[in-house]
Structures are given as structure tokens and as C-alpha cells.
């Protein structure tokens, strides 16, 4: 049986770091399967290892136990079949917007490159900005460019590490809509790490809740509502309450501190 492109399987995955000679377990026996084309959020308080998990999927952390499989193959390093959007937009300030979007497109001719850049800037609504420098953009615009850069390589999955965490609340809600639009358009797997429960419910098919020290999976919640979702609906609040309940039980601090 062949595996559909964009399928992620995580089996018995554990990861520990050595700090001052002591082993610190960050992830403990993680098992997850993400069907191709789904939108997954990983929520949890600081230090639960969700970013480490994302970095393993990205290939920046290679020394881990168990398996993280993309399309059935073990992830051993970075590759262009996975795109990433970091919390900081991480655009190179010395490259123009266009050059930043083209950053991952090396083995192609100038014309083909330009076409891809134009397409993707249009996709994120920034046509005409290709010769601007990152310093000239607002936070929301910079993050759109970062998303365009990640999508320009046509990845099978897009990893999002708190992609909207640095934006103000209104820009953030707007960008959530944008992400949903892009996901529906591109039909690829997206895995997002976030602190924001509303954001997770609004965007995801599956919400994975993690708890800390060592990071384990506490609960996997499916969000079956049709899109676009209404943040004010009763079903939305119902699921939110269900997720928040998990946090109250898991941490010794009130939830407010864990945001």
C-alpha cells in the first residue's frame, strides 16, 4: 500500500538533551499519525517540547529515539519537502522581498524563479512589493512573505512554529483567515505549534494537547466543524472548554500563566 504524500507518522519518539552533564528528557514516547492534507495544531504550555517536536519534523534535531516518518521515510535532516514558518519572520534583511521568497529556489533559471516568486507574492497578497526590503514591512506583511517563501518550494507539509505569535490581536485574526485560505488552496499538510487555543480550534482538524516535563501527549481532540468557523458559536466554546479543562488538570499553575 502506498502512502499518500504529506503523511506524517511519529512512532515511540523520545528526545533528551544533556544540560550540565544531566540528561533532560524533553519528549517521551510520542505516537501520532497525521493524515495527508490535514491541519494539525499542537498546543501546550511553555517547555512541553512542542517546538522540539517541530524541529525534529523539520530535521534540525536529528539525534532522537523512535521514528518520525514522512511518507514512510525516517526524517534525518532538513529537506525542501518540508516548509517552515518561524515565529520571527526570519527574512534576511539584506535581501529584497522577492529574493527572500526565492531563497530556497536554487536550481532554476531566472525566468522560472521570477514566475514562482510573483505567483507566491500574489498568493499572500503582496504583489508589487518584491523590491522592498524587510525593514520596510510591517510585522504582518513580513510574516506573509515568510509564508510565501515556505510555500514557494512546494513542500508536502508546512510546519508553523507559533507563526502569528508576534502579531497584534487584530492582525492575528486576519492572518488566521489567510492561513486557512492558503491551506484550502494548497491542500497540503500543515502542522502548527501555538499557545493560542482559539487559534488552534479555528484552524485545525486535529488539536494535539501536550503537557510538560517530559513532554507527553495528553489528549488528541478532533474538530469536526465545517469551515469557515464561527468563534462565537456554542460548539466552538464547547470544544474550547474541553481543551482548557486538560490544562487545568495538567499544570500546577492557573491556566492564565501558561498562555
Amino acid at each position: 500500500m502506498s502512502i499518500e504524500k504529506g503523511t506524517l507518522q511519529i512512532r515511540n519518539l523520545s528526545k533528551s538533551f544533556t544540560v550540565d552533564g544531566n540528561a533532560l528528557q524533553v519528549l517521551n514516547n510520542i505516537n501520532l499519525t497525521f493524515p495527508a492534507g490535514s491541519f494539525i495544531s499542537i498546543v501546550g504550555s511553555s517547555g512541553c517540547g512542542k517546538t522540539t517536536l517541530l524541529r525534529i519534523l523539520l530535521g534540525l534535531e536529528t539525534n532522537y529515539e523512535g521514528d518520525a516518518l514522512l511518507d514512510g521515510e525516517r526524517i534525518e535532516g532538513p529537506g525542501t519537502n518540508r516548509g517552515i514558518v518561524f515565529q520571527d519572520h526570519r527574512l534576511l534583511p539584506w535581501l529584497t522581498v522577492g529574493e527572500n521568497v526565492a531563497f530556497g529556489l536554487d536550481k532554476q533559471n531566472r525566468k522560472a524563479k521570477k514566475k514562482i516568486v510573483d505567483e507566491h507574492l500574489k498568493l499572500v497578497g503582496l504583489s508589487g512589493f518584491e523590491s522592498a526590503y524587510p525593514a520596510q514591512l510591517s510585522g504582518g506583511m513580513a510574516q506573509r512573505v515568510a509564508i510565501a517563501r515556505a510555500l514557494a518550494n512546494k513542500p508536502e507539509i508546512l510546519l508553523l512554529d507559533e507563526p502569528l505569535g508576534a502579531l497584534d490581536a487584530l492582525t492575528r485574526m486576519h492572518m488566521q483567515k489567510e492561513l486557512e485560505r492558503l491551506w484550502l488552496l494548497e491542500k497540503i499538510t500543515m502542522v502548527m505549534v501555538t499557545h493560542d487555543v482559539d487559534e488552534a480550534i479555528y484552524l485545525s482538524d486535529i488539536v494535539v494537547i501536550m503537557s510538560s516535563r517530559p513532554g507527553i501527549i495528553k489528549q488528541i481532540i478532533k474538530v469536526p466543524f465545517p469551515r469557515p468557523r464561527d468563534r462565537a458559536s456554542s460548539e466552538f466554546s464547547h470544544i474550547k472548554a474541553e481543551i482548557l479543562k486538560e490544562f487545568h488538570l495538567g499544570t500546577e499553575y492557573p491556566f492564565a500563566y501558561a498562555i
Binding site: L58, G59, L60, P78, G79, T80, I84, F86, D88, R90, L92, W94, L95, F103, G104, D106
Partner: peptide
């Protein structure tokens, strides 16, 4: 380190890494 990571993700190495990431940043 953030730019070095980015270069790893996009598989920038050798001369390309030097001219596109290291030198402009150090300029």
C-alpha cells in the same frame, strides 16, 4: 543562529552559504 538555521533548512552550504548568508550579515 536564526539565519544559520534558515540556511540549513534551505540547504545552503559552502560558497553559497558564505556569499548569501555569512558575508552579507557580516558586511
Amino acid at each position: 543562529k536564526r539565519y544559520r538555521e534558515l540556511a540549513r533548512v534551505f540547504d545552503y552550504r559552502g560558497a553559497r552559504f558564505l556569499t548569501k548568508v555569512i558575508l552579507p550579515s557580516a558586511m
